[in-house]
Each structure stands twice: as C-alpha cells, then as structure tokens.
Simulated assay, not measured.
Amino acid sequence: MRTFFGMILGALLLVGGVYVYDSMQTSSIANGQVAQANRTIVNWDVAAADWQALKGRAHDDWVKISSK
C-alpha cells in the first residue's frame, strides 16, 4: 500500500513541478523567435482539453452504468 501511495504522490509531485516550471517560462507566441530557447515542456491547452474530454466521457459512462 505504501508503494502505491508513493507512486501516486510521486506522479502528483512530478506534474506539479512541471506545471510550476512551465508557468515561469515565457511564451514563444508573446516574444517571437527569442523565446524558442525557453519553450514549455507541456502544452497545457491541449492537456486541459484532453482532461475535459476524459471527464465528460467518464460522466457519460457513469450515467450509462447507473441507469441500468
């Protein structure tokens, strides 16, 4: 159980660390060619859209399962 908890905690710390790192970087759209050296690790707009799609699909599946 401790190993499973450690893996979950490690994954959350990793995602949190990447988010903090990316939030401190400049945008290549805002600053043009100069900012290409400081590109973010994750495209957070795509990640947010995928997360919303996952939540919607899970909700639809839950409604389908609970209605039976």
Rank of each mutant, 00 (worst) to 15 (best):
W62L: 09
K55S: 07
T40Y: 00
V46A: 14
A47P: 02
A30M: 09
G16F: 11
R57H: 06
K68Q: 04
G6A: 15
S66G: 00
R39N: 12
G10W: 09
V15H: 01
S28M: 09
T26I: 15
W44V: 11
V15C: 15
N43A: 03
T40M: 13
A37S: 13
S67G: 05
D60L: 04
T40L: 01
I29S: 15
R2Y: 11
Q33H: 12
Q25G: 00
K55D: 07
L13C: 06
L54M: 11
D50K: 08
V18R: 01
V46P: 01
N43Y: 04
A48W: 07
I29Y: 15
A30T: 12
L54K: 01
T40D: 04
G6Y: 05
V18W: 04
K64C: 00
A49L: 09
V63I: 03
D50F: 10
L9Y: 08
A30V: 07
Q52W: 13
V18C: 03
G17D: 02
R39M: 10
M7Q: 06
L54S: 01
G10Q: 05
L54V: 06
F5W: 08
N38L: 06
A47H: 01
I65A: 00
V63T: 01
T40K: 09
L54W: 01
S67D: 06
N31S: 11
D50R: 07
R57N: 14
A35G: 08
A30H: 07
N38M: 05
M7E: 07
K55C: 09
A11F: 15
G32S: 03
V63Q: 05
G6S: 15
R39A: 04
V15I: 15
N31T: 14
S28I: 12
T26K: 06
G17P: 07
W51C: 09
I41N: 12
W44D: 02
K55I: 03
F5P: 01
Q36D: 13
L54F: 05
S66P: 00
S23E: 02
Q33C: 06
L13Y: 04
I29H: 12
D50E: 06
G10V: 08
L14C: 09
N38W: 08
W44Y: 09
L54Q: 03
D60T: 08
V63L: 05
L14I: 11
N43T: 03
F5G: 00
A35E: 12
I8S: 10
L12C: 08
K64P: 02
I8R: 13
Q36W: 12
W51T: 13
W44A: 05
A49D: 15
S27C: 08
V20Y: 13
V15M: 12
